[in-house]
Nucleic acid binder design. Structure first.
Lengths: 145, 145
DNA sequence: CGATAATAAGTCGTGTGCGATATAAAAGTC
DNA sequence: GACTTTTATATCGCACACGACTTATTATCG
């Protein structure tokens, strides 16, 4: 009764392995774009809104600058973004899509559909599940704060 | 309509960030045990069933030997497990808990309850959500296979 | 029985992720 | 206006995570 150390009761483990499973599905799709999954997330963020700061991106992606800075440098090396110090506030680095970065969006348009297909679920089911997972995430983040 | 590249519709992103959120909650708890989260998973696996092989552990945790071998060496250095070549099949490495490794379970007993508390959900809710996430994982793994 | 294939674990290179810390610029304080 | 504090980003060290490859051992097949 007191022994709750069972792997198959851990929701964290389900989430952890599901995250890896998503990565495996994404890998071949993103290889064609020359992106890793976190790089893809950063690009999606910038396609939604160009000229964001490192900090702004970090808040949306829940990532630290120590994670983002090297990742963004790789995106810059790949030619998809530019990193420029803000003139108004020299502490801030603004991220801007290059023309190549903007064009990559066309090739990426088909990706979300492939993922939905791979999930074997319809948009409604996924939407409900997503909302529950987000609510769980928020509870955890509040608790860890 | 065709533009589905919105971060806040991605269930993968919800899962990805929820996984990080779990890690943040686990961190202070596992620091007391001297374990990282993946190391904790490996120990839970061995507490459930001692004397497993690297491959067997990998199947349960969905991890490759290239991930597990260094992790298990760290657990061995920490004094929690021993890694021994099987006599019957010299290719196989069997993992055995040390006395210290077995004793660590006592200290770990309180961890699952803390995680459930942090989730702000009861066991029923978590169980249902977990089942859905596992089903999603299985669909993804099948698709990626 | 000997050559070949399959299997188990390990190594290596690349890319996250994060905590601790550093650096530099801006903001606040006296 | 010099001094302190805060903020934004970057650097470093450590630990995953995996693909590609290597090595050693076992299984298979002619």
């Amino acid at each position: 009764m007191s022994d709750q150390l069972k792997l198959d009761t851990f929701i964290c483990f389900a989430v952890y392995t599901a995250s890896h499973a998503f990565n495996r599905v994404y890998k071949p799709l993103l290889d064609e774009l020359g992106l890793t999954y976190p790089q893809y997330l950063a690009m999606v963020c910038l396609w939604e809104e160009d000229s964001q700061t490192v900090g702004g991106l970090g808040e949306k992606l829940f990532l630290e600058s120590s994670t983002l800075t090297p990742l963004l440098k790789r995106l810059e090396t790949a030619g998809y973004i530019r990193r420029e110090r803000s003139k108004q506030d020299e502490r801030v680095v603004v991220l801007r899509l290059t023309e190549e970065g903007r064009q990559l969006k066309e090739k990426a348009e088909t990706v979300p559909g492939c993922i939905i297909d791979a999930s074997g679920r319809d948009a409604d089911q996924l939407g409900r599940l997503q909302a529950e997972i987000i609510a769980l995430r928020e509870a955890l983040n509040k608790s860890a704060a």
